[in-house]
Design a protein around this nucleic acid. Structure first.
Length: 388
DNA sequence: TTAACTAACGGGACCACAGAAAATT
DNA sequence: GAAATTTTCTGTGGTCCCGTTAGTT
C-alpha cells in the first residue's frame, strides 16, 4: 500500500525509508549498533533475540522526513525530529520557534516499540523520550514543567495538553519502558503551515531551547505589564540548566540578578494574567525578539528566504490521513492570544471604530482623551500615561 | 450515488495611531 | 562621533468579506 523506497542511504529519494530487514514496512527506529533502520516488528524481533542485541542503542526515526534518526523531541508537536527537520519546522514562525524541544537519547535496553502507547512521556518516567545520560535512566521532571510548557506553547490547549500528557503517564508509564510511535505523534504535523517556514535561525542545539524567565526591570513606554517570575523550584533542574549554559557559554539567569544575557532562542515564558490573554512585556520582547526585528536597510533578511519545502515522501493515503488528523485537531485547538504590547491593546480598545475598523478621532475626542485617558489607563491596570 | 444548494465556519484584510527602531541631518 | 530630527515599520481589536467545509435535499 505504501509506496516506499528501499532504505538506501543515498538520500536521493524523498520517500520514507523502509525497514532494512523486511524491506516492506516503514522504518521506525534506527539501530546505531547495526547501522540499520528497522520497523517496529523487526526491531522487536531482532533486539529481543538475545541480551547483547537488546543493549543496542536505538533512536526513533524522524517523523518529518522519515529518513534520518531523530535528534530532538518537540513537546508541542509531539514529534521526534532530526536536526534538519527540527531546524526547518521550528523556524517557520515565532510560535513554532517557542516550541520546547529536548534531545532524544537512545532507547534503553530491553525497551521495544509499542504502537499503542502515546509517544511522549513528559515526565520522563518510562516511555517516549529519555533524558538520562545512561540508557534506561529516566529523569523526573517537575509537573510544573508540563504546565509551563503548556502555557508557553500557545497553540495548544493547555488543559488538554496537560491532561493528555498526564493521562499518558498514568496509563503507560512504569509498565515496561514501552515506546510508541504514531498515534498522536503527527497530529500537529502542519501540512499547510509547513510551507510557510522560512530560513531557520533557531539553533538545533537542544540546550539552546531553554526557557528563560524575564528579568525584573522597569518598563518604559508600552512596557507596562508587571512580570511574574517563573522561578525554578527544582534546584536540580536549575543546576542542569546551569551546566548546559556553562557548556554553551551562556550566562545563566538568576532571578536575584537584574540582567539577563543569552544567545539562545526566545523560549521565554511569561505568566501574566491580565484580562484573558497572555501579555508579554514589550521591553522584554524587544530584548528577546532580536531575531525578528526589522533588519537594517542594506542588510539581508535571513528570514525572508524561500520557504522550506514540505517533505514529499508521504504516500497519498498517508498524506490524506495526516491532513484529516490535522483538520480534526485544528477544530479543537484553542488559541490563546498573546498580547505583546499592552498599551497598544489599551489604545486599540479605546480607539473609535466604524464597522470594526479604526476611525480617525475628531478634535473633540482627542481633547476628551487628553482629559480622561490617564485615569482610564490606570483603571485598566496598564499604568501608563499616554502622550497625546 | 451524485449534484446542487445552504449554512456554518475560519482566516485574512482593513482601518488609525502610538511608539520603537532605523535612517538621516 | 554624538545629538537631534525624520522616516519607516509594527502591533493592536472589531467587523466584514470571501473561500472552504459540512450538512441537507
Amino acid at each position: 500500500m505504501l509506496k516506499r523506497e528501499s532504505g538506501s542511504s543515498s538520500g536521493d529519494s524523498t520517500w520514507a525509508r523502509v525497514c532494512d530487514t523486511c524491506r516492506s514496512a516503514a522504518c521506525t527506529v534506527y539501530c546505531r549498533a547495526d547501522s540499520a533502520y528497522l520497523c517496529s516488528g523487526c526491531d522487536a524481533q531482532i533486539h529481543a533475540a538475545n541480551q547483547v542485541a537488546s543493549r543496542h542503542e536505538r533512536v526513533w526515526v524522524c517523523q518529518g522526513c522519515e529518513r534520518s534518526p531523530a535528534a530532538f523531541f518537540c513537546k508541542a508537536d509531539a514529534a521526534s525530529l532530526c536536526a534538519e527537520c527540527d531546524s526547518d519546522i521550528h523556524s517557520a514562525n515565532p510560535l513554532a520557534h517557542r516550541h520546547q524541544r529536548i534531545p532524544i537519547l537512545p532507547i534503553p535496553s530491553g525497551a521495544h516499540y509499542d504502537p499503542n502507547r502515546s509517544l511522549y512521556d513528559p515526565a520522563g518516567k518510562g516511555n517516549g523520550v529519555f533524558l538520562g545520560q545512561d540508557a534506561g535512566e529516566t529523569v523526573e521532571e517537575d509537573d510544573d514543567e508540563d504546565e509551563d510548557e503548556a502555557t508557553s506553547w500557545l497553540l495548544l490547549n493547555p488543559a488538554k495538553h496537560s491532561n493528555s500528557s498526564s493521562s499518558n503517564i498514568n496509563s503507560t508509564t512504569n509498565q515496561n519502558n514501552g515506546f510508541v510511535f504514531g498515534g498522536e505523534a503527527d497530529e500537529y504535523l502542519d501540512l499547510i503551515e509547513y510551507n510557510s517556514g522560512t530560513e531557520n535561525h533557531c539553533s538545533s542545539d537542544p540546550y539552546n531551547q531553554q526557557q528563560y524567565t524575564v528579568p525584573r526591570k522597569s518598563y518604559a513606554g508600552d512596557s507596562v505589564v508587571p512580570v511574574q517570575f517563573a522561578e525554578s523550584k527544582d534546584s536540580l533542574q536549575q543546576n542542569q540548566h546551569q551546566q548546559h549554559n556553562f557548556h554553551l557559554g551562556l550566562d545563566y539567569y538568576e532571578p536575584s540578578k537584574a540582567t539577563i544575557s543569552y544567545n539562545g532562542s526566545l523560549c521565554h515564558r511569561v505568566s501574566v494574567s491580565s484580562m484573558d490573554v497572555g501579555i508579554v512585556p514589550e521591553s522584554a520582547l524587544s530584548d528577546i525578539s532580536i531575531s525578528h526585528s526589522r533588519p537594517p536597510k542594506g542588510t539581508i533578511d535571513l528570514f525572508s528566504g524561500p520557504p522550506a519545502q514540505m517533505p514529499t515522501q508521504l504516500s497519498p493515503m498517508d498524506r490524506e490521513a495526516r491532513v484529516l488528523r490535522y483538520r480534526e485537531k485544528k477544530k479543537t485547538r484553542k488559541f490563546e492570544k498573546t498580547i505583546r504590547y499592552a498599551s497598544r491593546k489599551a489604545y486599540a480598545e479605546m480607539r473609535p471604530r466604524i464597522k470594526g475598523r479604526f476611525a480617525k478621532r475628531t478634535d473633540v475626542e482627542i481633547e476628551v482623551d487628553q482629559m480622561f485617558s490617564p485615569t482610564i489607563m490606570t483603571e485598566n491596570g496598564y499604568g501608563i500615561v499616554p502622550s497625546f
